[in-house]
Amino acid sequence: MRTLALPRGARVTVVAAQWRDAFAVVTRGRVQLELRDGEPGPVLGRDAGFWLRGTGVRALRNPGRRTARIRIITPTTGGTTMTSTHATAVLTRTHRFRGLAGTGLLATLAAVVATTLAAALAGAAGADFAIPDGGETIPLPGFAVVTGFFSIIGVVIAAALLRWSARPAPVFLRTALTLTVLSFAPVLLAGADTGTTTALLALHLVPAAVMIPALTRSLAAHTG
């Protein structure tokens, strides 16, 4: 067993003979695989395990700001050590996604409850939620359904970034804030009266205030 350290921006060429029977686990930071044609490949996060034999990967890169570390294991007793480590790495990576999914589910439930309650209070305060002005009224359960749907979309985006992005937390934060701002456009163009428009804009911010911090913190906690 040995440890390979990759400083920020470092690149290490893969020598096939040295990796033929080796299994590796990222123990710190993130590592990007450089494919045979020189194109950037997948980014592997902390606790991700991988083989290089027969893959054609020609180099390992560190796309992050901190030093990445890779623990390299070679079989010692009929492959027992390698198999055990591989199973542990797979289970740990699964745990990361389950942790994110659990956080996302709880945040989604909280966002649905908070948004529905806020909509009820806005209705009691005089917002009629007629789209357009004088048209059909948005029913209260509609707020719960739409909030739940788009919150789940946010969880899916976070999971994709956890799998493929070198810096999932800041990328998710920027993406989520941008999408929140863009979501104001349909409200402003819907033709509702001022009270309803103001209430709908505020209701867009309620689930964002719940989901974005929760998922950003979870992504940061599950990456090295």
Rank of each mutant, 00 (worst) to 15 (best):
M1R: 08
M1W: 09
A17H: 09
D21I: 07
A24N: 04
V26N: 05
E39W: 03
E39R: 15
P42S: 03
D47I: 02
A48C: 12
L52M: 11
G54C: 08
V57W: 02
L60T: 03
P63F: 06
I73D: 06
P75N: 06
P75T: 09
T77K: 07
T81F: 04
M82G: 00
A87K: 12
L91I: 05
G99N: 06
G102A: 07
L106D: 02
T108A: 13
T108H: 01
V113A: 13
T115E: 05
T116R: 01
T116V: 03
L117S: 06
L121W: 11
A122L: 10
G123C: 02
G126S: 11
F129G: 01
D133T: 14
T137K: 08
A144L: 10
V145F: 14
F150H: 10
G154H: 00
I157V: 15
I157T: 02
A158L: 04
L161R: 00
R163M: 10
S165R: 04
A166S: 11
A166C: 08
A169R: 00
P170I: 07
L177W: 13
L179Q: 03
P186V: 10
L189S: 11
G191P: 03
A192H: 01
A202K: 00
I212C: 09
P213T: 00
L215S: 10
R217C: 12
A220Q: 04
